[in-house]
Simulated scan of single mutants.
Amino acid sequence: MIQHQTVTQHRLASNDPRYAEVVDFMLYEAELLDDLKERQWLTELVSREIVYQVPVRETVERARGFGFSANTFHLNENLGSLESRVARGETLYAWAEDPPSRVRHFVTNIRVREHGDEDLLDARSNILIYRTRQDQTNPQMLSGERRDVLRREDGRLKLLQRVVYLDLTVIGTHNLSLFF
């Protein structure tokens, strides 16, 4: 896993072409995921070396740290496990998501910083996922912060690492078959 640097990195201004490229990447990613084009998302936007994690949140005092487990995850995935999830969704056996949920990704507060390697960019964004299932009248909402590392591969940005820090300590959804 690529560690997020703790030193202050150069923040990219909104008029920097790299900033605009990251915003475009994130908006296109949200469109693909909202449109249930998960195979296209995986093949076009995800690096083969992906690390994709959702650590478990702990309620702790400030003195005890950030409040997330370093060793326990709701999701701790790589390309193989993401590929399996996408492939399963394409079968007749994904009962938990058939018919599929209706999902909207709201991505906001995008901040981009240089990583130290010219092919890498760090991006932080806030995410709100609004999800409805079947005929339910109460939506499910998941919010948190995404910390991404994007890498330029063959001239295009690809998601190399995503760590999602959810705001919830208890996830009130019946499955986590969605992508953040």
Score class of each variant (00 low, 15 high):
51 V>A: 09
63 A>N: 02
84 S>Q: 14
39 R>P: 01
50 I>T: 02
43 T>Y: 07
24 D>M: 06
71 N>Q: 11
30 A>N: 10
32 L>G: 03
42 L>S: 06
35 D>M: 11
22 V>C: 15
29 E>L: 07
30 A>V: 12
38 E>R: 12
18 R>E: 10
54 V>N: 02
35 D>E: 14
80 G>V: 04
38 E>A: 12
41 W>A: 03
74 H>Y: 15
62 R>C: 05
85 R>M: 05
36 L>Y: 11
46 V>H: 08
61 E>A: 14
38 E>H: 15
62 R>F: 12
57 R>E: 02
36 L>A: 10
19 Y>D: 01
32 L>T: 07
81 S>G: 05
63 A>P: 00
54 V>S: 06
82 L>F: 13
42 L>D: 05
23 V>T: 10
16 D>Q: 06
72 T>S: 10
52 Y>E: 01
27 L>F: 15
21 E>W: 08
79 L>A: 10
55 P>K: 09
33 L>M: 03
33 L>G: 02
61 E>H: 13
74 H>I: 15
46 V>S: 03
65 G>A: 08
78 N>I: 10
58 E>S: 11
81 S>R: 10
34 D>A: 08
47 S>M: 03
15 N>Q: 07
26 M>K: 12
53 Q>Y: 05
34 D>R: 06
41 W>S: 04
29 E>M: 04
34 D>M: 09
81 S>C: 04
26 M>L: 15
63 A>H: 08
51 V>L: 05
33 L>K: 03
46 V>P: 02
82 L>P: 06
81 S>P: 03
68 F>R: 02
66 F>V: 13
75 L>A: 12
15 N>W: 12
57 R>N: 06
22 V>R: 00
69 S>N: 02
52 Y>R: 03
43 T>K: 01
25 F>V: 01
49 E>V: 01
41 W>K: 07
75 L>W: 02
69 S>F: 09
51 V>W: 07
68 F>L: 03
28 Y>V: 00
26 M>A: 09
40 Q>E: 14
75 L>P: 01
67 G>Q: 07
45 L>K: 15
17 P>G: 05
17 P>F: 08
53 Q>M: 06
31 E>T: 15
44 E>D: 15
65 G>E: 01
68 F>E: 01
34 D>F: 11
79 L>G: 00
53 Q>P: 00
40 Q>F: 04
44 E>C: 08
44 E>I: 06
31 E>Y: 14
39 R>G: 03
48 R>G: 08
